[in-house]
Design a protein around this nucleic acid. Structure first.
Lengths: 240, 240
DNA sequence: ATAAATGTACTGTGATCACATATATAAGAT
DNA sequence: ATCTTATATATGTGATCACAGTACATTTAT
């Protein structure tokens, strides 16, 4: 029978689709901090009514992935250094906890997935001109593959909220950095990025050998080094 | 001119007000797990249009404080034992972290506020018939007074999401418990509750003396004992 | 008497219109 | 030329209507 072959095609709500799209835009850094977005224009761009866009944006505002400025303008939030430090601190704790919970629950499928992602990451890293956006995308998938092994959906949701907030920062830095620095500095930029991100090697290794404490330590190193890199690059707002 | 005398009346959005109201209803346990709510009826009850109620409920659904069941019915979620255990585990970690961060930032004002709340809590506890709802309310204020001292608004928001989910469970147990048990068992019920909640004594004491590790330990004790009490009371869903 | 069909009253979702307000543009006066 | 004022444009918010479902009771046919 056909009925059992085709996808149930249970159509999500339009609001949900719009939310997912905007979320992806934010996490992949296609929107830069401070950028405004209007309900009607994005509704036109997405070929939907304003209604779904309203609900999606309101949800993102609730998650602090967007904010309403003076005059009720909707924009992607700027981030101060202290705010960034706070999130980094929370991440080190929460994602460390997730790693700790994930380790004893690791099975073959998890390890295969992680290994594949790690290989893809190193492949991209070996290219002459590594695609920063792609690196960050794989980076995200790698982290969440580990956290998902903890079998704690609620914990995962909390971590996602944090990533949603730092997503724009990560990629904005990456993109604006390429333009801001002259050619010479760019390679330096990349060198530092590579050095920062390559901590994953130790991280993944620790995960695979079941070294829980080692994995936690490597993860915190990863998070804090990346944060230090972002802060020193000067893309954040100084005022508090 | 009158204009400068009257309250600025900068009215928040109606959606925001409705959200706050529903949030309060949920956290104070006025709605029981499984209870449905319709947009139009609650809109009528609140004397507003369905529009604000829609946005408020959607936000609560996003925070998993409400859920959409089959037929797209909106209801306050049931909670399985494993889900409850997960949240308890996350809470012990996250609120422990908040306490750790709060301790070195404690000043006189914080300590005064905490002391006042602690006194109110013990007063209510000393009554013949302690008001369970009030106890839980003070309990919540006490915890958040401490967490707020951490000066980490983002961390606070994450913890609030967790409390929003367990709020209904806490109070539902308290209310249905009084009816479910016969008179004799009720006093036993209360005795256990008192014993469980009175861990606060040690908790507050540790906070005031700046004993960070002691405070963390007392807090985890508090959370885990309360959780054990809830689980053993049998109000949670067994199926997973 | 039982079961199938139908109707009715709900549900959330999406589109469209009305409104108050803020921002930018342009016209006017000094 | 510059500052003020007025108009126009665009913004989010809220209300209302239309629609596609679902649950349940009533009715009808077997």
């Amino acid at each position: 029978m056909i009925h059992e072959l085709v996808t149930p095609l249970q159509r999500q709500t339009l609001s949900g689709d719009v939310y997912e799209q905007l979320k992806e835009l934010l996490m992949s850094g296609r929107m830069m901090p401070g950028q405004q977005l209007s309900l009607r224009s994005t509704a036109d761009a997405l070929k939907v009514s304003v209604m779904p866009v309203r609900e999606a944006t309101q949800r993102l505002v609730a998650e602090k992935a967007l904010e309403i400025g003076p005059g009720r303008v909707i924009r992607v939030p700027m981030m101060t250094v202290s705010q960034f430090r706070e999130i980094t601190s929370i991440r080190a704790n929460l994602e460390g906890f997730a790693t700790e919970q994930a380790c004893p629950r690791m099975n073959e499928r998890h390890l295969d997935e992680i290994e594949t992602l790690n290989a893809a990451f190193n492949d991209e890293l070996g290219q002459d001109n590594p695609d920063g956006t792609r690196l960050i995308s794989i980076n995200k998938d790698l982290h969440f593959a580990i956290y998902r092994a903890s079998e704690m959906p609620m914990l995962l949701q909390l971590i996602e909220i944090l990533w949603l907030r730092i997503g724009p920062i990560l990629n904005y830095d990456l993109r604006s950095g390429s333009k801001r620095l002259e050619a010479r500095a760019i390679s330096d930029h990349h060198t530092r990025l590579v050095k920062t991100l390559s901590h994953h090697g130790k991280f993944v290794k620790a995960i695979k050998t079941g070294d829980m404490e080692g994995a936690k330590a490597a993860l915190k190193n990863d998070i804090e080094n990346a944060a230090e890199f972002i802060i020193s690059s000067g893309t954040l707002v100084i005022s508090d």
